[in-house]
Amino acid sequence: MTVVLTPTAEYKVSTRDGLWMSAADAEKVTGWALKPEGMCRDERCVPLPASAVKGGDVDVEAFWQRLGGPVIASRDGDAWALGAPADERNAALEGLQAPDFTLPDVDSKPRTLSELRGKKVFLATWASW
């Protein structure tokens, strides 16, 4: 099994030859579904080169690069990180809607920013280092 890290989650999927995986796993990992038009999410479809689809499998590395996102593999190829495309991050920030997130508090209770809608939120970072 191969570990695939996305900006918000971690998946274990079966892969071959790099990041080829079943269309079902590709959808689970990326949120994009394989259709005749290409990889689709909501109303948007991104055409895939013929070389990136074969017998119901998808080359997720090729697809992710097509989206403009970075793809980084560990030396052994058993762990991969798919980074958010720069354009996607910029578009989200320029919309000025605060990107939502869920993070654990110190007692592991998950907290989600959007639960605070209706309040003014002072969102601040710190670190022990």
Binding site: A84, L93, Q97, F101, L113, G118, V121
Partner: peptide
Amino acid sequence: HRLSDLYNLVNVPQAVWIDEQGRI
């Protein structure tokens, strides 16, 4: 450092102010 990824942060402490409608 998911927050740094989402909000393009570079240091600590940095803050973002968000209003009642969830807007930066």
